[in-house]
Write a protein that binds this DNA or RNA. Structure first.
Lengths: 220, 220
DNA sequence: CTAATGACCTAATATAAATTAGGCTTTTGA
DNA sequence: TCAAAAGCCTAATTTATATTAGGTCATTAG
């Protein structure tokens, strides 16, 4: 079987992904949107994939792509990231001794020293962070406006979007039902790290999750 | 869940069948061809199926039918239709005493007084009527141009397509190898009935056939 | 009996989707 | 090092598909 170029491989994966997500074969234009290119480029790519025997299609028929030789799902390298427990109502102990499990994360999202925390609560659902998910966090003491951060306010550890407007600092949930936490002069705010990535809490082959125990999740 | 009419049920089954056969949701036109109707009729049917909650679709998107409540395969009611024997070289005796068996027929194709005849010969193969099949016939003395009819010409009983052009009447086989029977002034033509349906001669669960004996088949 | 539905149709129209043409870079293999 | 192939683009065009409009006829529930 002939080798695929990068672009061709990306295209083939996009086909499979959309097919799964939509329950039907995607159109040329849908693929174009997905890949951020224009339809004729996709069309060319499809011809090449067809020449190489990876797909089959019916000329001029909508949504007629058939995948003949599925690619191994997403060959980006996965790296294990430790899931660290948090002391329920105190400062998180970010030490490997506190590791309660691990998640596999595509290594292109990782930078610096990272760890993961299990999410509790629904305050970030508009950012697609749900209860049971794992947030991958880069440990860093500062963050920028609009970063999603793990922070401690007093005794409480939380995940929120950081808002800095001059002197005014807020931790904003991504859930219209909840109110922002306004950081006053005498409030103690400690940034623990910045959220780089979210892993679905669902353990799949593409998304392996192992946890020893389920203590100390982050209340968001 | 709201009840489906016959036509709607047929449509839903066609969707499922084509979906299975093609590996993708069929288009409106493909369904139209499959069902022998025009696209707008299918379109209406789809709206009704959607209203009743059996399918879901995305407006204006090709091949976007999703079946939500699959039908149990072929729930159309089957009705027994008697298979009648014929006196070998004479007028068929269309009486129940001559019944040599029965076939089960979806009752939505039946109208009026019906009976079935077993097919002999291959003169109608282009109309998908094959040797050993059963034609379901509505007993009626007249028929229209292009109907498939059971007719007697002189002593012979036959199944053919009726062609009426002004005074000129023919019984045309659906098989390019055979010639039409031209009905002259002094020929005696008697229409016995119109063919409503064909049952495959193969006895399946979906298509039960029982025959006591195999005499008096119709020569076509 | 009668109005409402359902099930068709023909003829258009509107929109989606696929495809072609022609040109511009970048990569890649000989 | 240089031509071919890969990857992209814009602009049209063609074809497939969905949809609307405005009828007919038959069946069905009141």
């Amino acid at each position: 079987m002939e080798q695929l170029t990068n672009a061709q491989n990306t295209l083939l994966q996009a086909i499979e992904r959309l097919k799964r997500a939509m329950g039907m074969s995607p159109t040329v234009q849908e693929l174009a949107v997905e890949l951020g290119v224009k339809a004729p480029s996709v069309f060319e790519g499809l011809k090449r994939l067809e020449d190489k025997g990876y797909i089959r299609r019916q000329a001029r028929k909508a949504r007629s792509i058939e995948v003949l030789h599925a690619q191994t799902p997403d060959k980006t390298n996965l790296t294990a990231v430790p899931v660290l427990g948090m002391v329920a109502a105190g400062q998180p102990i970010l030490a490997l001794e506190n590791q309660i499990g691990q998640v596999m994360v595509p290594d292109n999202v990782l930078r610096g020293k990272c760890f993961a925390l299990k999410v509790q609560g629904d305050s970030m659902i508009n950012a697609d962070i749900f209860e049971g998910d794992y947030v991958v966090v880069r440990q860093q003491p500062i963050a920028e406006n609009s970063d999603i951060v793990v922070a401690m306010v007093g005794e409480e550890t939380t995940v929120k979007r950081l808002s800095i407007e001059g002197e005014h600092i807020e931790l904003r949930p991504e859930n219209q039902k909840l109110k922002p936490i306004i950081i006053g002069q005498q409030d103690e705010l400690k940034i623990i790290g910045k959220v780089l990535h979210v892993c679905s809490g669902v353990d799949t082959e593409a998304n392996p999750v192992t946890t020893k125990q389920e203590i100390g999740d982050v209340e968001i």
